[in-house]
Design a protein around this nucleic acid. Structure first.
Lengths: 138, 138
DNA sequence: ATATTTCTTGAGAGTTACTCTAAGTCAAGA
DNA sequence: TCTTGACTTAGAGTAACTCTCAAGAAATAT
């Protein structure tokens, strides 16, 4: 059994966020001790893992709650859950593609600036070489 | 020259977001026509592209504004901008790694559910096979 | 020539998902 | 006993949109 602080450290999620998620109904089986302190089991950690995963790929909390509810409902919802996981995977793959595109933009920018620095930097101090307003480089 | 609607379509960013970004000072060189309508130039589109890119990898708007201000300041800030682009690239690569990890979690889940569906689904309808409360699968 | 539709504008309210603060309970250690 | 520290809740604050609205101009329809 783990306190919320331990879970925060193990799963790398802030205590605040864990409480927020708990209040959102994402951990339906976490128990409390005699002092009302949350006691996370190893099984509960798996719930944290999957919530963290769904959040990381941009799933809305409303949708996460629906998935959690399906889990709670039991074996009859396995196919629904399977479908959600597949859709989520596809979303993650799309994000990967998008991230690659943005990395291309950044690579281009990096080369552009490196080139400027390596070949034209002395021009910077030349007052004859001022750019016209409105045409500045991003 | 493009209206905000055209830019929204070309760059795949909503008009609302473009106005929000404009108000945040991200497009310092966009001009207006006689009716106060924004006229984006091709050069302005490059500003939209880089802002979109920085946002996509999680750069805060405050930090984007700083980058924009460096651009406006001119050639003397090229080395600072180069450094920001490099840091941003590193951030994007880290996100790629994180996304890969979450994809592993999703792959595991997918296999887990597929296995259940392929081999144990008939158990679902067997009332003898109810899981104990608190041990449900996420 | 007038009516209607379509665009754009700014201001400002609403939303999501945290993130933080305040005020309080409780138990163990100096 | 006092204090420290972990925990609790409610609720305020924040970032970055996201949406609604009313007003004004221009294009199109009648």
């Amino acid at each position: 059994m783990y306190t919320i602080k331990e879970v925060a450290k193990i799963m790398d999620v802030s205590e605040h966020t864990l409480r927020f998620w708990a209040k959102s109904g994402f951990f339906p089986f976490v128990e409390r001790d005699s002092n009302n302190i949350r006691q996370f089991s190893d099984n509960d950690l798996e719930w944290v893992r999957i919530v963290k995963c769904l959040r990381a790929v941009g799933t809305e909390n409303k949708a996460i709650k629906k998935y959690i509810d399906l889990c709670v409902a039991g074996d009859s919802t396995i196919k629904d859950r399977y479908k959600i996981i597949q859709e989520t995977k596809q979303k993650a793959l799309n994000q990967m593609e998008e991230l690659k595109k943005q990395l291309d933009v950044l690579d281009f920018k990096e080369n552009f600036y490196r080139n400027l620095i390596e070949h034209n930097l002395e021009d910077t101090w030349n007052p004859m070489n001022k750019r016209k307003t409105g045409a500045k480089t991003v």
